[in-house]
Design a protein around this nucleic acid. Structure first.
Length: 201
DNA sequence: CTTACGATCATCT
DNA sequence: GATGATCGTAAGC
């Protein structure tokens, strides 16, 4: 399947976020293809978005958010997990989409091995879990998803059904913005820790 | 079913 | 010194 090109990522974060649903995140590890269908994402913007890491301007950690769209922004969270984002918006305008959950497709046994013993459903149903399953860490921060041989995104082959939108999970600011998007009915969406939102059955 | 909390560290105040 | 775009486990209802 074809990769997304640069211009795909240069739109506003919430737009890119919605369009990423149903796409395939591909990780090449030891020559093998590991992949998952993106079923849950969150959009983060810049100085207009108090929940964003880029809210207070560029720092060492967040500089990739201010750079060319279509790169990986990987950060270390709570001293425990890595989280994967895709940078968005034109160069100079910060933005990113957090990949929150995948439906594992290719290399499921390898992913189970990478992440400990888990079923396919709980393998990648959270932002910290999917990076463990795909062995994504700080070394991939800044990787160009348009050109990289290790990590990239392919256009989805099938349509996405109904898309749900809720508040973003785990934030305390700008909670009123419905910038978490997910494929309704997917069993692979994260449980999350929302403050009073709908969840899939 | 729900809520609470510790782990553990980069980043910021 | 405090916080946080998380997770797994434990305990309570």
């Amino acid at each position: 399947l074809p990769r997304f090109q640069r211009r795909f990522f240069s739109e506003k974060s919430p737009t890119v976020a919605r369009r990423l649903l149903g796409s395939l995140l591909v990780r090449i590890l030891d020559g093998r293809r590991l992949s998952g269908r993106v079923v849950e994402v969150e959009a983060y913007r810049g100085i207009s978005d108090p929940a964003s890491h880029a809210y207070r301007g560029p720092t060492g950690r967040t500089e990739v958010m201010f750079g060319e769209p279509g790169h990986a922004y990987v950060y270390f969270s709570y001293g425990v997990h890595y989280c994967l984002n895709v940078t968005t918006e034109p160069k100079g305008a910060p933005g990113a989409v957090l990949i929150r959950a995948l439906e594992p497709i290719e290399g499921v046994p390898v992913m189970i091995k990478n992440s400990g013993f888990r079923s396919r459903v709980e393998l990648a149903n959270g932002p910290g879990k999917l990076t463990r399953a795909l062995k994504i860490d700080g070394r991939l921060n800044g990787a160009d998803l348009v050109r990289s041989k290790e990590l990239f995104l392919e256009r989805g082959s099938t349509g996405v059904g109904k898309v749900g939108a809720t508040s973003r999970i785990g934030i305390t600011k700008a909670v009123e913005r419905p910038w978490r998007f997910y494929i309704e009915g997917s069993r692979f969406v994260s449980r999350g820790k929302p403050s009073g939102q709908p969840q899939n059955p």
